[in-house]
Structure formats: C-alpha cells, structure tokens
C-alpha cells in the first residue's frame, strides 16, 4: 500500500474497524513511512481532544420533566414513569422473548456470525470488495483455484435478482476463504465458502446481527455463510443452496434476535 491508499484508512485503523489484512498492510507501511506515522499520531491526538470536550449529561430537571410532565400533559400521558418502565422492559423483553423462542446460536456459531458480519462490513469499508471482478462464473472459479486449495462452486443466480459481481480472498477462522460477491438492488451480499472437512451437513440457520442478516449452512462438503443488509425475506430468496427452496422455516419471522443493550439509565 502507498500513502494515498493508507491515508483514508488511518482513521478506521485507529478505531479498530479495519480487517486484519488491511491492518497488517497499514502497520507495515507505518513502519517505513514517517509521514503516515505522523498523520496517525495527529489523528490520535484529535481523538483525545474531542473526548476532552464536555459530554453533556441530562440534568436532574430534564429527568424530572420526563417523569412528571407538565400538568396538561399528565392527563394524556398519565403514568409516564410506568410507561418508561414498560419501554425499558420492552427492550429487555425483546431480548428475552427471542431468547426463548429462537434458540440462540451456540457460542461458536455466535462467534462465527460476528466474524462474518465483521468481514462483510470491512469488505465495504476498505474498498476491498473484489479481487476478481466478473459476472462470469467460468472466470471466477478458476481464479479461486489458483489461490486456494479448493474451488468453490459459483452459481449464476442472476435470474433471481442476484447479480454476480465477482470474488475476493478473505480470512475466516484463521484460514483463507473464498468470498463470492453478489448484488441485489443496492445491497451487497457476501457469500463465504470453505471446505467443511468431515463435518456433517447442517440446515440453514439465519440470525440478525446488528442489523445484518447472516445465514449459515453446510452442504456439499462446504461451509457456506451469506451476509447482507438485505431484509431477511430478500436474503431468503437467494437460491444458493437447496435449503433455500422452499424457504427454510428457520428463515421465517426471524428479524428479532439481536444485541439489545438493557436500559442502563
């Protein structure tokens, strides 16, 4: 990477929002480029500066106003305090309800979903979405077999509204994996594929992680993970694997589980 490529990513690097590959590239560059190292230090100082500006906390008066609104409002929003309790509980309940009805992913799956979302976000952030750009699967598949010890099956699903953009090398579980990139409307879908050595097939499981939809399954000896900010219903229409047709029951009514921060105030 040269200075021009490094400069716009320094902030994301400092914020810990960059993928491992770019972080390593940037670290290598910082080691030999005083200019960029200086820029980074300035960014860091700017961050310190901003966090020295006041964080305005809510006053007691505001709290009181919200809990005991003016008298004419009181008639309308009678037990406001109770209603807030309900909202706060609602945030929790949403988590609890889902906890109950949707089996939470086991720890390993949860971790994997998170990595998949991280990789997805980073692929969009660092402008490193595609290593090979082609709508032709005959081009993409051989490209991968030159880089990996396996060649993922690349499907043409443009008839279903998913345009193939190309592919990319990515890292998951400490190994290089193939990322197939599709686009539907304005939304990018990353599909990660790598061999599932000796593990049994597994039906699709969908979860929503911080607003992204993640679907994972195991079929044809491969691990598959699809991720996008598409609605669950639209991602469900992605006919990549047999369990998508008909829609897998696991995919229905499934926009709930998420990271809820319990009300702390």
């Amino acid at each position: 990477m040269n200075c021009r490529e490094v400069e716009p990513l320094l902030g994301a690097y400092l914020d810990g929002e960059l993928d491992l590959l770019h972080s390593l590239d940037i670290e290598a560059h910082l080691g030999r480029c005083e200019l960029c190292a200086k820029s980074l230090e300035e960014l860091r100082q700017t961050g310190f500066a901003v966090s020295a500006a006041p964080r305005y906390r809510a006053s007691k008066q505001l709290r009181a106003r919200l809990v005991h609104p003016a008298s004419e409002q009181r008639r309308v929003f009678a037990p406001v305090n109770l209603r807030w309790a309900a909202v706060a509980a609602g945030f929790l309940l949403a988590a609890v309800t889902v906890w109950k009805f949707v089996p939470p992913p086991d720890q390993a799956t949860g971790r994997m979903e998170r990595s998949v979302v991280d990789n997805h976000v980073r692929s969009l952030l660092a402008n490193h979405l595609l290593d090979v750009q082609s709508a032709d699967r005959q081009t993409i598949q051989p490209w991968f077999s030159g880089k990996l010890d396996y060649a993922p099956e690349v499907e043409d699903i443009s008839a279903h509204g998913f345009r193939l953009l190309g592919g990319r090398l990515d890292y998951l579980e400490g190994r290089p994996v193939a990322a197939l990139v599709y686009q539907r409307a304005q939304h990018v879908v990353n599909v990660f594929v790598w061999p599932a050595t000796g593990q049994p097939d597994r039906p699709a499981q969908a979860h929503s992680v911080e607003g992204y939809q993640v679907v994972g399954w195991r079929a044809k000896g491969m691990n598959w993970w699809a991720v996008s900010d598409l609605s669950p219903a639209s991602l469900e229409e992605m006919p990549l694997c047999p369990c998508f047709m008909p829609p897998h029951p696991a995919l229905q009514a499934r926009n709930l589980r998420n990271i809820i921060r319990p009300a702390s105030d």
Binding site: Y56, A58, N81, W84, A88, A263
Partner: peptide
C-alpha cells in the same frame, strides 16, 4: 427508568 438519557441528551446538546 429512562433508558439512554445521557447519550440522548449529549447528542441533542451537540446538535
């Protein structure tokens, strides 16, 4: 029982 009030107020104050 007012969730996230400080964050809300800080954002509003700066905006």
């Amino acid at each position: 029982m007012l969730p996230h009030l400080d964050s809300a107020h800080n954002l509003a104050r700066w905006l």
